[in-house]
Design a protein around this nucleic acid. Structure first.
Lengths: 369, 369
DNA sequence: TTGTAAGCGTTATCAC
DNA sequence: GTGATAACGCTTACAA
């Protein structure tokens, strides 16, 4: 079992399926790697002719082409993209670096980007940073060495800068997604964090909430800053004070939200509503509340940025500011493809996608507070 | 905006950021591609010495190594993996083909596989088939041409066979995940579909349900067959009749569940509970129920295979048979890495991971039916 | 410890 | 229409 067993204590049954016979093993040699040269030899033509056939070049006699194609099929020949890429200087691959695929927002981004890329004949090399700047830097290095034709990155934060700088210097086709990185000027697809946060908090205020807490991420992250600014602005406009006690800074993930909520619950004077900087922190917050036997929205209101996919269907519960995740993905893919197509020195573009306030019940709407 | 505009009607603002100056453009030439030869020339050594340095070979004098490393850093040299792969016959890349990244089950699989692969220095090329066998076949072809060192595939179904056959013939390191494909013998990581379904339906029966419908996928999919078998067995053991009217066959996705539910709702004699073959069909079913103004579990019970991540936290609602998605991913990655390490002719292995019945409220437990 | 030559699998270029 | 040759960026094998 060699290392399998300790990987997952969860193994249930391990059964060797029916074995491979000696007869089949004899075939082994026959299925060795076949290269373009092998095809050429078999077909009695030069390698160049085979190359022309697989690239659909016009100047090949129909008869020759058919003969070559027959050999290709019979040998099961598949061109080697490493060799092709080495000479053509393009791999048909785009790197996608995101903090967490299991976050529904990024899962949708990924899917949309993949679909868009595929339409243009590109594939996606996906990397998960888990919010780790060091890993992010490693991945960038890695993807460059793999000669990806372009890069879409949802950076961890401003500290991503040093890792991104080499890409800027090389004028690598690069699109930043969701978050910006201070000092990095390149194409950028963002949501309207400021406006979205503002409307969300305004909504809470309109419902009668006066003490509104915010769970936010590190100041290093642009979306956190913008959403915090929206929060402040909404309070300010309503003439409400900004109470530092009500601000809980944490990491932008589920455990972070959990911890932040615990901190908020320790306050002497608790808030009547909480605005979480994103969906994962809201889930963590929810978990902490549940453990304390507190219910939403009866005990406290809870709203956040980013919808939690699928949840809306099962239990339309959380009031959120939704972002068009799929548009983020397809837009970013499209922009990076355009950069690849004309590697020119065009000015960086900023695309800002709109948010949508979705009022459900978690904010206490309809409770007549 | 050249094609950007029609991509997403959702564009909000598009702003060119501050431009790139002529002075910076002068640098452009300086940042041209640097190769191992360039480093060698700069450092006054042969290409081989540079190669030895980047591969941490022992036989390099410390002084030489440092000199080379300094040049590497100053030139920002990054080795070209295409060239390395072409000669070493390995790319450090594993292909992962799944039907849908946005399905929480596969998102977790992906993340776990990625983490496991990274620990061993491998990267993941991720492909989404959207349940399309044709696309799946294309992707397999594609990944082979990219010279991936191994492949993890959650096949669409039995019809994936012809696409998988070439891999078997080449003895490509291959692990099938979640679903098997008829006639394909290779490593396989599966859940206990039969047992899980059986326990789930037994639970419904214990709660007093007598008319239990099932939403299932095409007969082509192994998990569907096994879960259906579990359903039949549970009914049989309890002495309940198997009513063909209560079986709705559909596609294994959200729209599929939606359609199947509509079909079930048209029955003269409706079931008191429904077993959906997976989480996505359950979500679709839920949507259809909601549109009809029917509530779960009051109007009808609804249970399914696969937990819906995050949902349990927000609203512990759906009774499910949960599968350890992360174990699926890390196990599959580990198995394919082992195949890569020793490309030997080992017999195919079957790993079956256990399921867990999680009773919540959607089944009508506690309603005193 | 370091260097030389050949070649991985493909294509650009220029002949024929 | 087709082929010979060099080259993409690197490493293996051998020599010095």
């Amino acid at each position: 079992m060699c290392g399998l067993a300790d990987a997952a204590t969860a193994i249930y049954v391990t059964v060797p399926l029916s074995g491979i016979t000696k007869v089949q093993m004899a075939d082994e040699r026959a299925e060795m790697k076949v290269s373009l040269r092998d095809v050429a030899k078999q077909a009695g033509v030069s390698p160049m002719t085979v190359s022309r056939v697989i690239n659909n070049a016009v100047s090949v006699r129909q008869e020759t082409r058919e003969r070559v194609e027959k050999v290709i099929a019979s040998l099961g020949y598949i061109p080697n993209r490493l060799a092709q890429g080495l000479i053509s200087q393009r791999t048909g691959t785009i790197g996608l670096i995101i903090p967490d695929v299991a976050n529904p927002f990024f899962a949708l981004v990924l899917r949309a980007a993949e679909i868009t890329a595929r339409r243009e004949g590109y594939r996606l090399l996906v990397c998960n940073t888990e919010g780790d700047v060091g890993l992010e830097r490693d991945y960038i290095h890695n993807l460059i060495s793999h000669q990806v034709d372009g890069l879409i990155i949802a950076p961890v934060g401003d500290r991503s800068r040093s890792g991104l700088l080499p890409l800027i210097r090389r004028k690598y086709p690069l699109v930043l997604l969701d978050r910006s990185a201070e000092g990095i000027e390149c194409d950028l697809v963002q949501g309207d964090s400021l406006g979205g946060a503002q409307r969300l908090v305004q909504h809470l205020i309109a419902l009668g909430h006066r003490r509104i807490a915010m769970i936010l991420g590190p100041d290093d992250v642009s979306t956190t800053r913008e959403r915090y600014a929206g929060y402040c602005e909404a309070l300010n406009t309503a003439g409400l004070p900004l109470d530092r006690d009500l601000i809980a800074e944490t990491t932008v993930d589920l455990p972070g939200g959990y911890r932040a909520m615990q901190q908020i619950l320790r306050l002497d004077e608790r808030p009547s509503a909480i605005f979480a900087v994103n969906n994962m922190t809201a889930l963590g917050a929810m978990q902490a509340l549940r453990e304390q036997g507190l219910s939403v929205p009866e005990s406290v209101g809870l709203v956040c940025f980013d919808d939690v996919e699928h949840l809306a269907i099962l239990a339309p519960f959380m009031t959120v500011v939704d972002q068009p995740a799929e548009a983020f993905g397809s837009m970013a893919a499209q922009m990076v493809l355009e950069r690849i197509a004309r590697r020119a020195n065009e000015k960086p573009r900023l695309v800002r996608l709109p948010t949508k306030l979705i009022v459900r019940v978690s904010c206490g709407a309809g409770l007549g507070r």
